[in-house]
Design a protein around this nucleic acid. Structure first.
Lengths: 179, 179
DNA sequence: CTTGACTAGTTTGATATCATACAATATTCG
DNA sequence: CGAATATTGTATGATATCAAACTAGTCAAG
């Protein structure tokens, strides 16, 4: 009973497996629990990134801002492959995001002098400014969230979520190369 | 991010705001904490739905499976608008997902006799079977996750995440809350 | 009844994302 | 050296998703 926004939320996952077999076993409620957990996570992801993108200036998407921010924080001159690995998206996805950032004049690329296959990605001045603007626009959102979850609760959540993320990351079908 | 999901992972959010102001205040680390929290959530959402879709048969996507599952659990004959609300996607998104399900022969639609604007969505036999197959294919994934997070940990995570989701859901149309 | 406002569903145009396939360059090894 | 293999970036075709514009049906006031 909610309204719009993003993906598939809906408490349904809760019971996805609850009605599969006539004979409830030990594993059935466990599966339902994890379905529900991943469903909540999916909903939160959708709602938060949706709100984030609405706040971002210059028509920046979360993916685009992420790249700008990464370049500011960890430095210019990385290759698309490295960026794709950092964000854990395919290289094709990164190609697309970088091309949009380049269209907007927020990055520029140069061929890698040491490797004929590679490029290097550099921020432009406009890109640095856009990133600053994005940070300023997003900050209030995160401050408000404190109303839903205080610092202590957020910190308590972080540890197990990181463990879960790490596990998922290591156990995925090594489709694209790590790093 | 989801993807499927979609998003940007990378521990960057951790420090997104850490280097914004020259004078660190109390709020700065708090913002960074929440950035990191939402980042982890985004990553998990992406990785889990990606793994889920890889396991699903019949070329079903998570969105498509969700609709089939919803119809099995909560009953046939709902309108697209109701489904869109249940999954919290736009009606346009639901139109798209339903049309694909209809192409695959998993649902059929009929005009609503009481309201000339509406349709009713019904599962076909093939749709019911596909949903069963999907449940069977997905179940092992969720059992495996136990290795990363045991039942007790998952349950402990669920409560605060539900609270966070609820807060985000309630505060999303207010103009400056978003997150 | 006619008008105005609201709802249902669709369409279009953008993005992100994935999988797959491909060309060009690098690397490894027999 | 030269062939097999690996990696880089790109292109293509699907899907999901949103926002916004649009058509059509419903409903409440006058």
């Amino acid at each position: 009973m909610a309204r719009r926004s993003c993906q598939h939320r809906d408490e349904d996952w809760t019971l996805i497996l609850s009605d599969t077999s006539g004979t409830p076993t030990d594993s059935t409620p466990t599966e339902a629990l994890y379905f529900q957990l991943f469903n909540e996570i999916g909903i939160i992801s959708q709602l938060s990134s949706s709100a984030f993108e609405k706040a971002l200036p210059h028509g920046l998407t979360a993916a685009q801002f992420g790249v700008l921010n990464h370049c500011v924080r960890l430095g210019d001159g990385q290759t698309p492959a490295r960026l794709a690995a950092a964000f854990q998206v395919t290289r094709g996805t990164m190609t697309s995001t970088l091309s949009r950032l380049e269209s907007k004049g927020f990055i520029r690329t140069e061929p890698d002098p040491k490797d004929g296959r590679s490029k290097r990605v550099y921020l432009t001045e406009a890109g640095k400014t856009a990133r600053e603007d994005g940070v300023a626009a997003a900050a209030p959102l995160f401050r408000d969230v404190t109303g839903a979850l205080d610092r202590a609760q957020a910190e308590a959540l972080l540890q197990p979520l990181q463990a879960l993320r790490k596990w998922l990351d290591e156990n995925r079908n090594t489709d694209f190369d790590g790093l």
